[in-house]
């Protein structure tokens, strides 16, 4: 039942979901806010990537010929997605974090503001670009290739590899750099970090930009398979949020494990004959409900306990 293409599909879903979930999880554990505007970041980066690809396509085709032109376009579009995601991260930082991060009720108020930003950006996209769906060029390729005798869709493979590489880079950066050390210190104990002279404001800014950029990557990668439209961010936001919660907020390994579980669950639900695609969300929520009733703190809590 679980054949090879399904396996890569599940990994592909897990890759996209983990990009979203890690963003939400990182932000919660370091800054202490639930970023409901993550879906808006996703949608806006998707639109930015679409317009950039639309505009750059003739230029790139003129400059580079042959199959390399698509690779160049893919890299440029990805860069645009990353940059626009990071810029929207700065916007969220300026509106939802900077004015109120040291005021009472920060967690609830920032949640409300990011929720409002999400609603507002969806409506603004609808207002300016209309409800039409935009399709990005398939620059990741659409053929299949043989990987150790298994036929794999190229775009899914590229997505998985890109995600693994990018997440590896991010985790490596968090592990070795000075800023990463500061971020990890804030994640462990924000008051202690502040007492050691680590500025909460200057640590939150790169985290916001980083999580925004991750959402931008997810948008560009996923828009190879779905269309870009104003409400495109809603599903990734809900999936990311549920997976971040399932993994236990603040736990990166928990988020990755949750994303893989949910990815496989979604891929499996889609092909079971009497369930089918319509029940994907229901099965997922039912699974998460059962998981949360068994483990109220999510999977990350489990990992934390075993570590101790």
């Amino acid at each position: 039942m679980m054949d090879a293409s399904l396996f890569t599909y599940a990994l592909y879903l897990a890759a996209i979901y983990s990009l979203m979930a890690i963003g939400i999880s990182l932000l919660w554990s370091s800054v202490g806010m639930v970023n409901m505007a993550h879906g808006a970041t996703f949608a806006i980066s998707g639109y930015a990537a679409y317009f950039a690809a639309d505009w750059m396509m003739p230029l790139v085709k003129a400059a580079v010929d042959g199959p390399q032109s698509m690779t160049v376009l893919a890299i440029l579009t990805m860069a645009v997605g990353i940059v626009s995601g990071a810029i929207f991260g700065i916007v969220i930082y300026l509106v939802a974090f900077l004015p109120i991060h040291d005021k009472p009720n920060f967690a609830v108020r920032s949640l409300i503001i990011t929720l409002a930003l999400n609603l507002a950006s969806v409506q603004a996209l609808l207002y300016f670009f209309g409800p039409q769906q935009k399709a990005l060029p398939r620059f990741l390729g659409s053929g299949r290739m043989d990987l150790f005798g298994i036929p794999v869709r190229i775009d899914q493979l590229v997505t998985i590899v890109t995600t693994v590489v990018l997440l590896g880079l991010v985790l490596f950066w968090l592990r070795v750099s000075r800023k990463g050390l500061e971020i990890r210190a804030v994640m462990q104990n924000s008051e202690g970090a502040a007492l050691c002279g680590i500025s909460t404001r200057w640590t939150a800014l790169p985290i916001m930009m980083l999580t925004g950029a991750l959402a931008g990557v997810a948008a560009v990668l996923l828009s190879q398979n779905i269309f870009v439209n104003p409400t495109a961010g809603a599903t990734p936001l809900i999936k990311g949020l549920t997976i971040a919660l399932l993994g236990g907020l603040g736990s990166v390994p928990g988020a990755v494990l949750g994303a893989i579980l949910i990815g496989f669950l979604e891929a499996a639900t889609g092909i079971i004959p009497f369930l089918g695609q319509r029940y994907v969300l229901v099965v997922q929520f039912a699974f998460i409900v059962i998981m949360l009733v068994i483990r109220p703190r999510g999977l990350g809590g489990l990992l934390d306990e075993t570590r101790e």
Partner: peptide, 8 residues
């Protein structure tokens, strides 16, 4: 958008 502005 007005509602969200009021919210913010």
């Amino acid at each position: 958008i007005i509602v969200t502005a009021v919210m913010i």
